[in-house]
Design a binder for these strands. Structure first.
Length: 959
RNA sequence: GCAGGGGUAGCCAAGCUUGGCCAACGGCGCAAGAUUGAGGGUCUUGUCCUUAGUGGUCCGAGGGUUCAAAUCCCUUCCCCUGCACCA
């Protein structure tokens, strides 16, 4: 992009910021407050992030021009371990991290400085504000900037949690969560940079089944507790050395790896010794629930690192169990080796326990036969297991062998059987990850018990109900989400809200050892922007941000004078802030990416509902989709993702802004494509050039096409106003940057050039572009001699310019005639020397009139119109000709919609309009043009085409 | 596992809530013409088949409702996304 672009961007940004037009101060105008969900400070952002942010700037600019007092505050979310781990990696001089930082424009000398988490936070705060948001020309109220690790923000969060506690929404209970044994809690997620392995792991809940075996308990782990009724034997891996541990006084046998994991979940586990698997084989043990003695048999599929390394055998429904049993029954050598009685082993038969649609009584047996599996290690066993489990769980019912659960759906029975065993002391729970997860520090991640975890009770019924009811009154886009959020709010349940370990954030007010986690401190914050600038400017000292301060300014609780005195600020200031809150809140729109749909938005809404009075509950949510695809590839290429400032430099900020606004619906992902942005860039250039051309026109009389153009602009303003009711920037930009340009080109082509028209056109057009491409809009605004910022000028309304439906219909008619002419020229391949146009004779227009009249009164029919036509003497006189035309007209009109009918009803003076345009047509076609009436017997008509003329459809003859 | 989205002409992508201005916005690409002493750029026109401005076929596939369906209903195939102390 040319340096000209960067120059005007810098110029207008400087002027806006110097003039302070972004500052939002309470006054008498209606207000509009909008935010985007602030980004987490985890490093550099990429061009995809700017999509949503740009929507907010464009929408708030539009609202500002529509007369609203606009508040668009920004902040950042620094809570978490992102800054800590980044600082750590920098400290360790991690090469990848260094490359990443440098590629994104971090000055090399800065690196040494970024070894402290807080320095990292400060650094990125500055990057986001200056290199991203200001670089894009945002009119955010910079004075209100806040970040979640700032001490004042912490005061606010502590207040928020006190309010949650007051409402009884903080609860405490044990919790099992993934944690690195060294670094503390981590999120197990594929995108999580704090993991070096296993991001896709899931947490499984195993039921530990205790089998009494002499004076020991063999402890098997199962994901299917409902299958206990089908147990036939017990599996032990002869190659594994198990450990003996004491649990609540009981001697348990489990595998070593399971002990290593289990001790993070069961505090009293004591390791007492080891016992080889072979020592157990051949014994019997008592199976839980069914209380039968079952033999302990050898099996090699029991892996020590899955579950407890011990398995209860349910050959009816577990393919592994069935194949192992079958093979053992045929394996004399193995039975002999372990001294097993072959008769006893062969007597074991699967017990049917679950009836599943599409399966016989023994699904595992059936499946193994069907798949032809004959070996214990067959990888398809896993597939078979999953299929049986899935079908059995969703569609199965417990069979008559399942005791009191017979006939019950598996889905229900599973939970009940598990509970029953836990209550009777025959079972316990154990959580494990589905695959190995390794922290970036190299240590394993395990599921750890947190005995006294705090939760926010989002499952609270009245909170849920109030939130759902309120959501129905909100403007939520897209429409689908308006519906779905009801379900999300229902589903939203208790959520762990504090944690320990490496973490930046606010201390939990009721217990200092906890730090509030990342999602819980980012829900109510929009209201904090109404306080932050008083703190930032020094008017409110940190010590004044007490519970009673927030109670007063947010909830109106307490006495102003008393509160003011106790916190040491003036009553005036306190009341001013209180008034600010009442004025600016509720928040009109919270915009965020689609990842927020199931967590942030419901939490955002529920915290508002829980803490604030109803009149301060938010009014709108806007969800935007991503910029995706090639981005990933770019980010892995040598230079990393193209940094935002570089993209701004290359393409121009306005081109990027237009790209975001127009490339697709906000509710669809788009693939980053540099060609597309180039196109938007060149579109802006074309518009600039067209504006210059318009200004350079020599001047012309006012013509019909002037009425057309002004009317089009008027309707355009109306269309934009409608589109913006739903914040539809795509339609808006389509009108302003595509439709208008094509109209203007048409106007010029038609010979338009009236100075008065052009002046009105430009004044409207430039203002229409100001929200999306503000820099070039300002430049053009100044270029037409306007004073002041277009950014603060009222947005054009349809009232400003005259609408003229006839002028539009007439011009449209001309365009259709030209389309027909082109069609003929194309088909015939004639290079025209002369063009004859014959407009409809009057009598045909009369027939159409009659038809339209009947259509208006819903009485149109073919015979009806013919009758009406025959009732008129002058038409009747034409005989068959008029009857035929009446039939044709009626048939045609019957097919048309109301809109089309109303267009046909427009009283376009065809002949006059075509005559007026004859010079233009002649120039366009490069030939003579004659316009005649088909009524006129003296008109030249070499091919007798005139009789084909119809209303709104002149006959055409070219030669 | 829980929740949800989508398949539209060579490509990207509107339309679908409220059936009829839909052969289907717009853009890209491609082709032709104009301008330009190359190229690029810009402007105009065209870009499903057929055709003196007509007619035919079409919106993943199959069926249905209707005077009328890309739009509503059913069946079916295929893609994709979000969430589970990352925000």
């Amino acid at each position: 992009m040319s340096s000209w672009t960067a120059e005007i961007e810098a110029k207008w940004q400087q002027r806006w910021y110097e003039a302070g037009i972004f500052e939002a101060n309470r006054d008498d105008r209606p207000k509009f407050m909008m935010i985007f969900a602030y980004p987490g400070l985890t490093g550099y952002l990429h061009v995809g992030h700017m999509r949503g942010y740009t929507y907010v700037d464009a929408i708030t600019r539009y609202k500002r021009m529509c007369g609203f007092n606009v508040l668009f505050p920004v902040g950042t979310h620094a809570t978490g371990n992102g800054a800590i781990s980044l600082a750590k990696r920098i400290r360790e001089k991690d090469q990848k991290t260094t490359d990443y930082l440098l590629a994104n424009g971090c000055p090399p000398e800065k690196l040494a400085d970024l070894t402290e988490p807080q320095k990292v936070v400060d650094f990125f705060n500055q990057v986001y504000v200056n290199q991203y948001w200001k670089r894009f020309g945002f009119l955010a109220d910079w004075r209100r900037f806040t970040s979640t690790t700032n001490p004042d923000y912490g005061q606010f969060i502590q207040w928020q949690f006190r309010k949650l506690h007051d409402r009884g929404l903080l609860i405490q209970k044990p919790y099992f969560a993934p944690a690195c044994v060294e670094c503390g809690p981590v999120a197990v997620d594929a995108s999580e940079t704090d993991l070096s392995k296993g991001g896709n792991a899931e947490t499984n809940e195993y039921t530990l089944l205790k089998f009494r075996c002499g004076d020991l308990f063999l402890v098997a782990a199962t994901l299917r507790p409902e299958t206990v009724y089908g147990q036939t034997n017990f599996w032990v891996n002869p190659d594994v050395e198990y450990v003996k541990v004491r649990r609540k006084g009981e001697p348990w046998v489990i595998s070593r790896p399971s002990y290593d994991k289990m001790r993070y979940q069961k505090d009293d586990l004591v390791l007492e010794g080891t016992i080889p698997g072979t020592e157990l084989i051949g014994k019997t043990c008592v199976a839980p629930v069914i209380h039968r003695e079952v033999p302990v048999l050898p099996a090699t599929f029991c892996k020590p690192d899955v579950g407890t390394g011990l398995v209860t055998s349910v050959p009816s429904d577990a393919p592994d169990d069935w194949i192992s049993l079958k093979l053992l029954q045929e394996d004399e050598a193995t039975m002999a080796r372990y001294g097993l009685d072959p008769a006893m082993v062969r007597a074991i038969e699967p017990i049917p326990i679950i009836e599943t649609k599409g399966y016989g009584p023994l699904p595992a047996v059936e499946m193994i036969d069907k798949m032809g599996i004959i070996e214990a290690g067959d990888p398809r066993l896993d597939e078979a297991k999953k299929a049986i489990y899935k079908d059995g769980f969703h569609t199965g019912r417990m069979s008559s062998n399942a005791g009191q659960f017979s006939g019950m759906k598996v889905e229900e029975a599973k939970e009940l059987i598990k509970q029953m065993m836990i209550e009777s002391g025959e079972a316990e729970l154990f959580y494990d990850l589905s695959e190995e997860v390794i922290c970036r520090c190299g240590r394993p991640v395990v599921i750890r018990k947190v005995p006294d975890q705090w939760f926010i009770d989002y499952a609270n019924p009245s909170l849920t109900e109030d939130s759902k009811r309120h959501a129905k009154s909100m403007q939520i886009l897209p429409q689908d989400y308006y519906v779905n959020i009801q379900g999300v709010l229902d589903w939203f349940r208790e959520r762990a809200c504090v944690r320990q370990g490496n973490w930046l954030g606010t201390r939990f007010p009721y217990d200092n050892k906890w730090i509030i986690e990342a999602i819980s401190d980012s829900t109510l914050y929009p209201i904090y922007y109404l306080v932050s600038h008083y703190y930032n400017s020094g008017q409110l000292p940190l010590s004044s941000l007490t519970e009673e301060f927030f109670d007063y300014v947010y909830l109106g609780k307490g006495d102003a004078a008393q509160v003011a005195a106790s916190i040491g600020v003036s009553v005036e200031l306190l009341e001013r802030i209180r008034k600010d809150v009442s004025y600016w809140y509720p928040l009109d729109i919270n915009l965020g990416g689609k990842e927020h749909m199931t967590v942030h938005f419901p939490a955002f809404l529920m915290n508002h509902v829980a803490i604030l009075p109803e009149e301060l509950w938010p009014r709108g949510i806007f969800v935007n989709w991503y910029v995706t695809g090639k981005l990933g590839k770019i980010s892995k290429s040598k230079g990393g993702a193209e940094p935002i400032p570089d993209a701004a430099e290359r393409f121009g900020v306005d081109a990027l802004r237009l790209y975001y606004a127009n490339i697709a619906s906000p509710f669809a992902d788009v693939e980053w494509d540099e060609n597309a942005i180039d196109n938007y860039s060149s579109r802006i250039d074309r518009i600039l050039r067209t504006v210059d051309e318009l200004k350079a026109l020599p001047g012309a009389e006012r013509q019909k096409v002037d009425d057309w153009l002004l009317s089009r602009m008027s309707n355009r303003a109306l269309a934009i106003a409608r589109a913006m009711e739903e914040y539809d920037l795509r339609r808006t930009s389509n009108e302003a940057y595509f439709e208008t340009l094509s109209d203007v080109r048409w106007y010029m082509r038609r010979g338009g050039g009236n100075a008065h028209t052009i002046s009105h056109l430009l004044r409207s057009w430039i203002r229409m572009m100001a929200p999306i491409t503000p820099h070039v809009a300002e430049e053009m605004w100044a270029g037409i001699g306007e004073q002041g910022f277009v950014s603060t000028t009222p947005f054009p309304t349809s009232d400003e310019l005259p609408t003229d439906a006839l002028a539009e219909a007439s011009e449209n008619y001309l365009k259709e005639v030209i389309t027909d002419i082109n069609e003929i020229l194309k088909v015939t391949g004639i290079a025209p020397r002369r063009l004859y146009l014959y407009v409809s004779p009057k009598w045909k227009r009369d027939v159409l009139e009659l038809g339209l009249e009947l259509a208006r009164s819903k009485q149109l029919s073919v015979p009806g119109l013919t009758k009406a036509v025959m009732a008129k003497d002058d038409l009747k006189r034409r005989g068959k000709e008029s009857a035929d035309f009446a039939r044709k007209t009626a048939e045609d009109l019957l097919k048309r919609s109301e809109v089309e009918l109303s267009k046909l009803a427009m009283d376009v003076d065809e002949k006059a309009y075509l005559q007026d345009a004859a010079v233009f047509l002649a120039r366009e076609l490069g030939c003579e043009v004659g316009v005649y009436s088909a009524d006129d017997p003296t008109a030249p008509d070499p091919q007798k085409k005139a009789r084909a003329a119809q209303p709104h459809r002149p006959a055409i003859y070219v030669e």
